[in-house]
């Protein structure tokens, strides 16, 4: 079976999982949540197999590289990492509420990668600049970071939602009762951001080491480099505001949303600016 066929099945599974998380939220029955988690786990397993098949296929065609070399492959890996980190959080916290925000982002990434006419899903050989052992560690750490920040974004949205309805006690919906407590959401936002921050730091550093070997300079102020630093600084500001000035809850949730916008710009928006990271343009 072709790995692209598996990937379209996975896209569908993530969509179905999202719908089931939505059902859980609307009807307040844990049955839907269990079904949603099952589909997400199944999708993750199938996607892992598809990624391995694509990896193998590149070797069969004599190109032999890890499937992390262009926009299509990075989007697929991004979706994979979001689902992985989300499911770990779900498993650790025993709460399925964030799924309704995290899983659709993974679905959108998968769907955009396969539908957009600008994104080629073909396995292409590596151009000289990408022929490096640093490719894997750089891309994996960056996207694990992005994925952790995406989960923080989901928790941030949930926090703001719950915080908004906290005032009117008269109409307690079934969904609100199922939400994690604000304290727990705050802790989840912080923990995902801490995880993402470490991954992003290592991602920027592996990128620097790679640039040192490929371009002769560990830092070139390429727009993607600068934007990754902007994102890093936004989260650094957030961490300082929390540690030293005691920012919690709503402010942290808003900052998680701002950070996510910066991530999206670092990943996609930057491609419209001139620079060195042009591999992602097609």
């Amino acid at each position: 079976m072709n790995h692209l066929m598996i990937l379209s099945g996975v896209t569908f599974a993530y969509f179905a999982s999202f719908v089931l998380y939505l059902f859980r939220m609307i009807f307040g029955k844990e049955f839907w949540g269990r079904a949603a988690s099952f589909l997400a786990w199944a999708g993750l397993a199938a996607q892992t197999i598809a990624l391995l098949l694509r990896w193998k296929a590149s070797y069969d065609r004599g190109m032999g590289h890890v499937p992390l070399s262009n926009l299509f492959e990075s989007m697929i890996f991004f979706a994979w990492a979001i689902i992985l980190i989300y499911l770990v959080v779900e498993w650790r916290t025993k709460n399925r509420s964030i799924g309704v925000f995290a899983v659709p982002i993974a679905f959108l990434a998968m769907a955009y990668a396969s539908i957009s006419p600008d994104i080629s899903n073909r396995i292409e050989p590596l151009i000289p600049a990408l022929q490096s052992n640093w490719l894997t560690s750089h891309v994996v750490t960056c996207f694990m970071g992005y994925a952790a920040f995406t989960v923080a974004f989901g928790c941030g949205l949930l926090y703001l939602l719950k915080n908004m309805e906290k005032g009117d006690k008269e109409k307690p919906s079934g969904f609100l009762g199922k939400l994690p407590s604000l304290v727990m959401l705050d802790a989840l936002i912080y923990q995902s951001i801490a995880l993402g921050f470490i991954f992003l730091t290592i991602g920027i550093m592996t990128g620097s080491i790679w640039a040192h070997y490929a371009w002769g300079s560990y830092w070139s102020w390429d727009p993607k480099e600068t934007w990754s630093l902007i994102t890093w600084l936004i989260y650094a500001i957030m961490l300082h505001a929390r540690y030293v000035r005691g920012w919690r809850g709503k402010r942290l949730a808003v900052l998680a949303l701002i950070g996510f916008v910066s991530i999206l710009f670092t990943y996609l928006g930057v491609n419209y600016l001139p620079g060195l990271h042009s591999y992602l343009k097609s």
Binding site: T226, W227, L233, I237, H240, L273
Partner: peptide
């Protein structure tokens, strides 16, 4: 840090 972020944003555009 906020000022540095603003400078970077301007610089990339």
């Amino acid at each position: 840090l906020v000022l540095i972020v603003l400078i970077f944003i301007i610089a990339t555009f």
